[in-house]
Every structure is written in C-alpha cells, then in structure tokens.
C-alpha cells in the first residue's frame, strides 16, 4: 500500500516538473530569449560561480579548523614528525595555489560575462607568461621533491644494527606476530611447513628459531629503533600503523620491511589525549578479501626497561608446544630440549 502511494506521489511530482519544464520552454520561445546570444541566465550563472566560491570557501575553512584535532592523528614515531611536517608544508603551498586559482576561476566568469557592447581581448599567446608559469611551479616542485626525497631516503634507509626485530605476517584475516627472542635473530621459515600449530611456517631445524615466540599484541620499546619484517602467507596485505605513519605491503614470496622509532608510550599518549582507551593500531590497507576491514592488531609502546622485562617473560613456541621439535634429528632435538628447559 505504501509502495503504491509513493509511486503515485512520484508520478505526481514528475508530472508537475514536466509542466514547469514545458511552461518554461514556451516562455523562452515567447520572450525570444532562445534567439539571443546570452540570455538572462548568463548573469545568474556568472553570479552563482561567485556565490559558490564564497559559500564553499566558508564551509571549507570552518570545517577544516573545527575538525583539525579529529583528522590530524597524533604522531607516535620519529619519522612521522618529519612526514607530517612535509605534509603541512605541501598543504600550505598547494593551499595558496588552490585559493588563488579558484578566486580567478570563479571571479573571471562574473567579471567577464557576456556583454554585446564589448569585444573579448585578442590575446593568443605571451611567451614571458608561459615561461613564468613553467619555471615557478618547477622551482617550487623541485624544493618539495628534494625535501621529500631526503625524508624518504632516511626513512627507507637501512635500519640501525640494534633495531629490535618483530615479524608481522599477514594472512586472511589477521596478523601473526613473531619475535626473535633473546638472540634478536628470527629463525628461518618455509611456507610449506605451515600447519595448524605452526601458522608462520617456522623452520625449527634452524637453531635461531628455538627462542622465537609469538604474541597477541605487538609490544615495542619507546625511543629505540624497531624493524618490522613483513610478509604474507596467502594474498597481498599491507601493514598500516596510522599513528606511526607507517605503511608497507605484505607480499607472499617477497619479504618487506619498515623500521621506525616510537616516541611516546601508549600510557603517555593516553595521558596526552586524555583518552584512557587509546591504543596504537595496525590495520590492513591492501584489499585482501572478505575480512579486509577487520585485520586489527594493537601495538603497545612501553618504556625500554618494561620492554626488557616483558621480553624475558615470553615463552618460546617450542616451550608452549614441544611437539614442534619432536621430529627433529637427535642432535638438534637435544639442543632444543636444552633450550626448552632453559626457558621454562
């Protein structure tokens, strides 16, 4: 019944619009404004451009200021300060260009709207102008690129020797986090070793893997470099830690990495934002299937001393599940068992 009423309503509305349209057309014909080069609508359109500019400019300014704290995420890493500065410098430069060009673009239509008595200026070219607006953008862009390039080289350069290693492996639809243990060296892995008890495919015939362990959250120390070793098990994923200004694809068959230094512990950030619930998060930013939108992982940043303590408390894979080393050759198995007893 409602559907029927709605349909009738729409029909009525359409027929009214139709009538208005026909009347309007006839009025135009009677007035003969369709014969004119520029009818009264020309003035209206010219005015609307200016009106649009004013209204939209005001809305943009108001919203940009009002929402600043919402869209500007707090920064949790050293390089994030640099990339954000670049971002805002670029915003300032492009913002000026945006405003000037749009003032011209919307004001010219108003100023130079059609007038029968006037003739447009015949101004086909001017080499000096062309040179100016080729060279000026080139110089400005060069400055932006060079500063961007310096930041990029620093960020993507080799990680410091002492960086704490954390492996993050993406799979449908979660992240698996593996730590190298006390030796700070991850054990080898092979995707063919993956099964229900060994989701990362760790190769336990590599001694470095004996002290490897996994955790439900990523814990890292503040002020010390950390390197994420990133890989994927099935399809592409991408590690995105928005507060750390960190993003790197996880590619099956091609390990990637990203190193950074956190600047504020989770506690400090909570105090600063006055938000006791705050957590650093990792999300996936490469479409990976049904659960793409739900690959959440928490990063907890702690003081270095606390980190050391936490690290010592963790139990390696093989301690939690000795069956992982059950099939190893005798010699290795003995080593593994020593390691298990040490770590218990």
């Amino acid at each position: 019944m409602y559907g029927f009423l709605i349909a009738i309503g729409i029909l009525l509305l359409l027929s009214i619009v139709w009538m208005v349209y026909r009347i309007q057309t006839l009025v135009t014909v009677v007035k003969g404004s369709d014969k004119k080069i520029a009818s009264g609508s020309n003035k209206v359109n010219a005015f609307l451009f200016v009106a649009f500019m004013v209204v939209f400019g005001a809305l943009m300014t108001w919203y940009s200021i009002k929402e600043f704290d919402n869209y500007q995420l707090p920064i949790g890493s050293e390089h994030g300060v640099i990339t954000d500065r670049l971002f805002w410098i670029t915003m300032a430069v492009t913002g000026v260009v945006f405003i000037i060009t749009h003032i011209l673009l919307f004001w010219f239509p108003y100023k130079y709207q059609y007038d029968e008595k006037r003739k447009a200026a015949f101004f086909p070219h001017n080499n000096r102008l062309e040179v100016i607006w080729t060279v000026v953008p080139a110089v400005v862009l060069a400055l932006l690129v060079i500063s961007g390039w310096k930041a990029w080289s620093d960020i993507t350069g080799p990680a410091p020797e002492n960086a704490h290693v954390v492996e993050i492996m993406g799979y449908q639809f979660a992240w698996e986090v593996r730590y190298p243990g006390m030796d700070n060296v991850l054990g080898e892995y092979d995707y063919r070793l993956i099964n229900a008890t060994n989701v990362s495919g760790v190769d336990f015939s590599d001694k470095n893997s004996f002290d490897d362990f996994n955790t439900p959250i990523v814990v890292i120390p503040k002020g010390e470099p950390v390197i994420f070793k990133i890989r994927a098990r099935d399809v592409l994923h991408s590690v995105f830690a928005p507060h750390m200004r960190l993003k790197m694809d996880a590619v099956p068959g091609m390990p990637t990495r990203f190193w950074f230094t956190a600047t504020k512990t989770t506690e400090e950030m909570r105090a600063e934002l006055n938000d006791p619930e705050f957590e650093y998060e990792i999300a996936c930013t490469e479409v990976c299937g049904r659960g793409h939108f739900s690959m959440r992982k928490v990063i907890t940043v702690v003081e270095p001393a606390e980190y050391k303590k936490w690290l010592a408390e963790q139990k390696p894979y093989i301690v939690n599940n000795p069956s992982l080393v059950a099939d190893l050759p005798t010699e290795l198995k003995e080593l593994a068992e020593i390691s298990i007893s040490e770590n218990k």
Binding site: I37, A38, S41, N42, N45, A46, T101, L104, L105, F108, P109, Y112, Q113, Y114, D115, R118, K119, A120, A121, F123, L129
Partner: peptide, 11 residues
C-alpha cells in the same frame, strides 16, 4: 585561466 581573462563569456 588566461583564456577566461578579459573574455566575453557565454555560459
């Protein structure tokens, strides 16, 4: 922009 400048604009 320069084409619009000092034109005789018909919308």
């Amino acid at each position: 922009l320069t084409t619009l400048w000092r034109g005789n604009l018909i919308f």
